[in-house]
Amino acid sequence: MGAAVLILFLFSAVSAGELPQGKGKCLVERKCQACHGLKNLIESKGISRKEWEDVVEEMKDYGLEVTEKEEKEIVDYLSKYLGPEKERAGSSNPR
């Protein structure tokens, strides 16, 4: 069992290093990684809030199950930390 705990620790340590810290990070990791790696998100870094909204909507078509509150938290996180430069800089005033 010790080995399994160690592996799980490594697993979480590795994935924790992927995305910027912020509100919603855990939720994004949990929901998005049900299907794909975080690299898919990181490659799309720089798209607008509207586009992140579309992406999350689209993912619902592919089986993502989220409440309205969770959806907002995920979109808030993605557009704040993986949005265009100016939105990331001016993140105190999210649209």
Partner: peptide
């Protein structure tokens, strides 16, 4: 079972390790 769990854990750990920054 435990063995499968370990194998699966290792596999995912490997996948996510490989999945870090470009």
């Amino acid at each position: 079972d435990r063995r499968d769990f370990l194998k699966a854990s290792l596999f995912y750990a490997a996948l996510f390790t490989f999945g870090r920054g470009p």
